[in-house]
Amino acid sequence: MPKFILQLDRESLRQWLPLVTLVLLVTLVGVFQPSFLRPSTLLQLASDTAVLFVLATGVTFVIMLGGIDLSIQSMASLASVIVALTVARLGYGSFVLAIAIGVVAGLASGLAHVLLKIPSFIATLAMSGVLASSALVLSKERSITLGELDRGYQTWITGTVYGLPNVIIIGFIVLVIAHILQSQTRFGRYSAAIGAGEPAAYASGVKVDRQKVYAYILSAGFAALAGVVLAGRLASGSPTLAAEMLLPSIAAVVVGGTAITGGVGSIWRTLIGALIITVVRIGMTFLGVNIFAQNIVFGAVLIGAVAITIDRSKIPIVK
């Protein structure tokens, strides 16, 4: 039975390691900095995680299928630019417009991926170029600060309800919607099936291409929402606003225990992963690590987590 126990250990490792890591990290930072465990600080931590979590939630749907979306940071930046440019004229309509553009962009990369049969990392890399370029052209390569009047439209992001920041509520709503999509709908079950074994899913009549396009639409749509929230929090829109968020987002998904080979994962795992990333970031800031240099750690964490979670039986040849 040793092989069975080995497999069990590996499985339970992936199941519980993320949660254990999170608890350990929070305790560790709490020991060094007791004020970290105060409710107000923890609320701040949750607010800071919200944008990352929304971005990571979107890309979770794609990773569950075994694909990847490298355009989320450009989409979020573009959404922030759209909000900053149109909020004065369209009011709340600007948020809808930004998310609608996200949906269209997701549809485009999804179709490029399934119809032209372009590998997802290259299709979304190309899409990220198109989106980044659009953001640069629209914003005339500047950062746009929201005016005093425009900020009135942002209270649903920046305000609080009974002391609870609205950002956390937005994050919670996203969690609920994404969780229902993933566990209670046909789309969620088909995604898991495609990720677990695409030929089998195809053979049992799942419309694989359609599910994939849905996943890319969700990914870009949530990325646009993240951009909208980010624009509200920072009171500005810029073509590079979310440029540094691609790596932490993907790292959050993978650190949570969702395998990049697809099939295994959940939104809860992504939530834990996003919290881990935020705690690590706060810990590093506390230790005085430069925010750009933090990418060294995130890069290493990403590779380590991929190496642990990946299902090698699915890829006989690793390319």
Partner: peptide, 8 residues
Amino acid sequence: FKVPSFMA
């Protein structure tokens, strides 16, 4: 580590 090249 048998990590796909795009991730590594």
